[in-house]
Write a protein that binds this DNA or RNA. Structure first.
Length: 922
RNA sequence: GCCCGGAUGGUGGAAUGGUAGACACACAGGACUUAAAAUCCUGCGAUCAUUGCGAUUGUGCGGGUUCAAGUCCCGCUCCGGGUACCA
């Protein structure tokens, strides 16, 4: 009986399906373990061989945990809303729901072939009403809550209203967009509209005027992480800045908590670091500066309060609200011209253009510590969105201020002893202060850190400013002018937004006859008929962004069919949060921040019992493509083989890797590949055409895409699973090279050969030998350690070694094989099931127990010591195991070979490393 | 610019500070076969030696710590990823 993987895999996949082998339910008698993959967006291209890498790793881990007695939740679903399906709809008119459905079908087919242990009863799709009902529900909650900065949690907006009606804005501690001051009487005197507008300032989901990344080509707003280098991630279209009224989520109110609880997570340092930088906490001070000869005062933020004596000018962001106030009549024209030039620059230009630009406002501010008049400038190197949009410039100690000062010939005052600012600024926070005394503050002689604190104390005391912590993290813009997304559960009454009643959810996505914006420039939902409430109030026309549906999906998997709640509380008490989350690093600043925010919000509401969604995160590396090239001699249709290409003037051309095997070109297939190669001629070496190769991104245009179905068809799913792990460390990027797969496939056939030979079933019931047990327990030890440490690639090697050993010693003991098969089951479940069945004839290997390690079996009779002289190994020595260090030393020194290396000298020192090495220092 | 990774044979990659190159691929030689495929065996960092044993050198570069460094420390070079006027 041959290893017929096709039949075996088909048989067991059917068996698992029919027996619902991987179905899980809450089971309080067993410990839970939740393993989650980042769910895919089902693109039209289907899966390539790189996509399942993480899924295979998580599947191995899930199966391992299951065999260790855990009740494992391992679900899968689809992030089904998104731009590509909508773009496709615009081009072809096909409804995105249809495209999405088709793509999901294709994904499922591909996934099924690989033998994953998902509980498909729990499948979710973000575009299904049953699912997005809860996305809309969460949005309503966010609208109905504000963030209390004192209690550090979200609280119902009613408690804020209550406080306003009793005490006005006095004493409230709420995260907000803008500080307002009003009395109770003023509040109670406000109209409904005014009150709603005021409350909007505090809601966690709020409508706000914000500068957004507007992509005219896509007709929508994009989040910062959906834009790179000034173009959209999807499609690569230019993006510009525009002020728009948009739904936003007050993610910034959670900045501190998002930062602090990072410490409790088992995430890689690099991704934690990325999130830390993204959140960007900086401690500093806000200070007020007066404009000379006027009542105008403005606030700046600085982390270097100590440099106040070196402030030689001030700078406002072009968009700053202060600009209007401070520009003098004489300067108005020049300022307008400057602002105009900025407006015509795209965000991209502003980012790439490092030239110094700016304009003088005509006004002067007073430095409160020197009483000097310093000019106020406008420049686009100051950002409106960070701090207060205004800075005090200290050219001596800030490189940007320095460049500005040099360009406009502004004075530079060094404040640190011995620093040289003739060529560049001195930005380091170290050294002794000089030139820093006046108006009651004397920093001279202090080091920088002391000076910062002293200045903060001083400005606090004198009422010049206050200590302030700033975050880089901005609120998330939550509106998209698109069709294929969750509709907002929002209607407008006299221009004021109100939430639908929860009982009206889900608010279904309406049908439209065009997926383009309306003629009046409204989003596609503007085409929908009867898009209004029963009382004929218009509904919101925007939809939610891609990250809406993926922010709380992990919770829904726990209780996917619950119609009354996002998740039942007792169910959530059991499954809690994700123990292991596997996915790519590209979500570090998007999904993984939003999801943490969303979860913390639900935690504040008592909906979920854990403050963090994903306990342990593993980031799988990218699988790159390995492209092949042929070399065409210029202006001919003749192709020259790789090693002799330099004798000609050639152009390398990508060739489909599927017609190249082991870098040998299949010439006939090449001729048939494309019409223009039909009459191609070849200059061969040794009768073969050898292709060149390079590692590149796996993509259609490089012709290096390898499809998992093709591999499964040719070698089987178990081989694919093993080989993906064998390629290299999970977290590392590595190229896919189909060539190496033979080795893994051969191993599985060899394993099969332990059980079947010439139609004979070999295993027998008999006591295993010591040698057999040793080989097995070496494997148990290695594989257990490897899986727990995500070092799957080295386990594959361990399996190969073990099978080789067992083959060599002609092992045929059922007891050994049974345990071997269980160890194998997480990696290669199909062949493991088949072999398990041949050994026991009952049940599934999934119900087996992970074998326990018996260290006794690993004990050696003797140990091979490497005997070194001055660190150099000279010979090896077998010494009985258990020999004491002293005796090992004695035996080593007395050995006949030692005399030769000692050359009659007495050793100075002897180091014995147990079971390993004896080093003799002469 | 800043932050984080990485650099080991022809290739992918192994190595709790302890015999570097596990395990595979590729390649070369051999066995079986009419032949091919499949399978099995042998060799495979470099240099020198070779009748066998071997010797020297070797983990991007330069230093250091140590009896012992791919691994730890200091200083570079190159490559990959992230991020960027964040005051």
């Amino acid at each position: 009986m041959e290893y017929n993987f096709r039949d075996i895999e088909k048989k067991w996949q059917e068996y698992w399906r029919e027996n619902q082998t991987y179905r899980v339910e809450v089971d309080n008698t067993k410990p839970k373990y939740y393993v989650l993959d980042m769910f895919p967006y089902p693109s039209g291209a289907g899966l390539h061989v790189g996509h399942p890498l993480g899924y295979i790793a998580s599947d191995i881990f899930s199966r391992f945990k299951r065999l260790n007695g855990f009740n494992v939740l391992h679900p899968m679903g689809y992030d089904a809303y998104g731009l590509p399906a909508e773009q496709y709809a615009i081009q072809t008119g096909q409804h995105p729901a249809i495209t999405t459905e088709q793509n999901i079908g294709r994904y499922r087919e591909q996934l099924d072939k690989i033998g994953f242990s998902y509980d498909w009863n729990r499948e979710i799709r973000t575009c299904e009403p049953d699912f997005y009902k809860w996305t809309q529900w969460a949005f309503i909650k966010m609208f109905s809550y504000y963030y209390n900065t004192k209690e550090n949690k979200a609280l119902p907006i009613e408690s804020l209203v209550d406080s306003f009606s009793k005490n006005g804005s006095n004493g409230i501690t709420a995260a907000c967009s803008k500080e307002f001051e009003f009395t109770a009487a003023e509040w109670n005197g406000m109209s409904e509209k005014e009150q709603q507008q005021t409350l909007m300032n505090y809601r966690i989901a709020y409508l706000g005027d914000t500068m957004v990344n507007w992509c005219p080509k896509l007709g929508t707003v994009l989040a910062n992480d959906e834009v790179t280098d000034g173009v959209s991630v999807r499609g690569g279209y230019p993006v510009e800045q525009k002020l728009m009224r948009q739904w936003c989520l007050r993610v910034s109110s959670y900045a501190d908590r998002l930062l602090k609880s990072l410490d409790n997570l088992e995430w890689s340092d690099s991704i934690k670091e990325t999130q830390k930088n993204w959140i960007g906490r900086s401690e500093g001070a806000e200070m007020q500066f007066k404009i000379a000869d006027s009542d105008i005062e403005f606030t700046i933020f600085t982390t270097r309060a100590d440099t106040i004596f070196g402030v030689t000018f001030m700078v406002l962001a072009p968009e700053s609200a202060y600009v209007k106030q401070v520009v003098t009549a004489e300067q108005q024209a020049e300022v307008d011209a400057y602002l105009d030039s900025i407006k015509h620059k795209t965000e991209r230009d502003r980012q790439t253009d490092k030239r110094v630009t700016g304009v003088f406002t005509g006004s002067y501010a007073i430095n409160p510590l020197t009483n000097e008049k310093i000019p106020v400038w406008i420049s686009d190197y100051v950002l409106a969105g960070y701090g207060t949009g205004a800075i005090m410039a200290v050219p001596a100690h800030d490189s940007r201020d320095y460049a500005f000062a040099k360009h406009f010939n502004l004075p530079i005052i060094p404040l640190i002893e011995g620093c040289d600012v003739s060529e560049e600024s001195f930005d380091a926070k170290e050294g002794k202060m000089i030139n820093s005394a006046g108006n009651g503050l004397d920093l001279n002689g202090m080091d920088v850190k002391q000076a910062i604190n002293a200045t903060k104390e001083f400005i606090k005391e004198k009422g010049l400013g206050r200590v302030k912590v700033n975050f880089r993290l901005r609120d998330a813009i939550f509106s998209r002018q698109r069709y294929w997304g969750e509709p907002f559960p929002v209607y407008y009454k006299e221009g004021i937004p109100y939430m639908l009643d929860e009982s009206k959810l889900p608010l279904l996505l309406p049908e439209v006859d065009s997926f383009l914006p309306t003629e009046s420039g409204e989003p596609p939902l503007g085409h929908a008929k009867n898009w209004e409430t029963e009382d004929h109030f218009p509904l919101e026309l925007c939809t939610m962004p891609g990250f809406a549906g993926s922010s709380a999906y992990y919770i829904r998997y726990q209780d996917p069919h619950n119609n009354d709640a996002l998740v039942d509380q007792s169910v959530n008490d059991y499954w809690r949060n994700v123990d292991l989350y596997i996915g790519g690093t590209e979500h570090a600043t998007g999904h993984l921040i939003y999801s943490r925010f969303w979860n913390k919000f639900l935690f504040d509401l008592g909906i979920v019992c854990e403050d963090e969604p994903y306990k342990k995160l593993v980031n799988q590396g990218m699988i790159q493509g390995r492209s092949n090239f042929v070399y065409r001699i210029k202006d001919t249709n003749t192709f020259v083989s790789y090693n002799i290409r330099n004798e000609y003037d050639v152009t390398p051309i990508h060739v489909d890797v599927n017609i190249v095997s082991n870098d040998h070109l299949d010439i006939e297939a090449f001729k048939a590949w494309r019409p223009e190669f039909h009459n191609a001629e070849f200059i061969l070496e040794d009768g073969k055409y050898i292709c060149g190769w390079a590692v590149e991104k796996m993509s259609k245009s490089m012709f290096n895409v390898v499809n998992p179905d093709v591999i499964v068809e040719k070698f089987g799913a178990d081989t694919l699973r093993f080989y993906e792990m064998f390629l290299g460390p999970l977290e590392q990027s590595k190229p896919w090279d189909t060539n190496g797969i033979d080795g893994v496939h051969r191993f599985l056939r060899k394993l099969w050969g332990l059980f079947y030979k010439n139609g004979q079933f070999l295993p027998v019931d008999a006591e295993p030998t010591k040698e057999e047990l040793k080989s097995l327990h070496k494997l148990i030890k290695k594989v257990t350690w490897d899986i727990e440490n995500f070092s799957f690639n080295t386990s594959v090697a361990a399996f190969m070694i073990c099978v080789n050993e067992l083959t060599q010693i002609k092992c045929n003991k059922k007891s050994i094989f049974k345990e071997l098969v269980v160890l194998l089951a997480p990696f290669a479940p199909h062949i493991a099931e088949e072999l398990w069945h041949s050994l026991s004839e009952t049940g599934s290997v999934c119900d087996a127990q992970w074998p326990a390690l018996n260290e006794d079996h690993l004990k050696e009779d003797s140990v091979n010591y490497a005997i070194s002289f001055n660190g150099k190994t000279r010979f090896n020595l077998e010494i009985a195991s258990g020999t004491s260090k002293e005796d090992v030393e004695k035996i080593a020194l007395e050995h006949e070979n030692s005399a030769k290396w000692l050359e009659g000298k007495t050793p100075k020192k002897v180091i014995v490393v147990p079971n390993k090495i004896v080093n003799i220092v002469i």
